[in-house]
């Protein structure tokens, strides 16, 4: 390495070598470099510090930085592995890896469980599901009577909470999603297959010689 320090490494705290990131994930080196193009664009949209803050994440998701959204906040918190309030490039690639079509089903199920376990108790509790349901209704400007919400919760817990202790543990969740595979659709992003075509400029900015695709 000597004293050479890449431009990316200097400008992007948490930047990691694409070859190393590719070896830890389902992404090829080219795909990691294409993701870096996306990362650069998102991380410079509000504050050009080489990191993605929550406002930038919201802006990228909704094209609106002021929009508050429980689910987007939750995803951000799970991407922010180091809990620093910002997502660095290494975290970004490893988190998106879970959404890769080739990522393991177990990892996807595990991530979805943590996503819905809002308080991080190791269980998806009824009050958490209710909170998410109400947030969804507000987001979509739908109105449902309290009674209807309770009926939906009753139905959900009668199906998912097999031991009927009022909360869904990880084993119950695994069983529930195996019976409801459509719930895992959001855990796969087909876009990730075409990432090098979406961000072809990675070729001009590559710091890796002889990219293996």
């Amino acid at each position: 390495m000597g004293c050479f320090q890449s431009k990316a490494r200097r400008q992007f705290p948490g930047y990691e070598d694409p070859v190393s990131l590719a070896s830890q994930t389902a992404f090829s080196v080219s795909e990691v470099e294409a993701l870096f193009e996306l990362f650069k664009s998102i991380s410079s949209s509000v504050v050009d510090d080489g990191l993605i803050n929550k406002e930038e994440f919201h802006l990228a998701l909704f094209k609106n930085r002021k929009r508050e959204n429980l689910f987007a906040n939750r995803i951000f918190d799970l991407f922010d592995v180091k809990q620093k309030g910002v997502i660095d490039f290494g975290d970004f690639v490893r988190a998106l890896n879970v959404f890769h079509p080739n990522a393991s089903h177990e990892d996807k199920v595990d991530f979805s469980f943590r996503l819905y376990d809002l308080d991080g108790t190791g269980f998806i509790e009824r009050k958490e599901v209710k909170q998410m349901l109400i947030a969804l209704l507000c987001e979509s400007e739908m109105r449902l009577a309290d009674e209807t919400i309770e009926i939906i919760l009753d139905k959900t817990f009668s199906e998912a909470d097999v031991n009927q202790d009022g909360k869904i543990d990880k084993l119950e969740w695994q069983d529930f999603v195996s019976r409801n595979p459509s719930l895992m659709k959001i855990m796969t992003l087909p876009y990730l297959r075409d990432i090098t075509t979406t961000f072809p400029s990675f070729v001009f900015n590559s710091e890796v010689e002889d990219i293996a695709t």
Binding site: F62, I151, E159
Partner: peptide
Amino acid sequence: KPSLMNAFELISTSQGLNLGTLFEK
């Protein structure tokens, strides 16, 4: 009918869970 769906089917339709928009330029 929403009442016939389980809560997670509804929740998974949230825009905030659709990361696909990250890839739209």
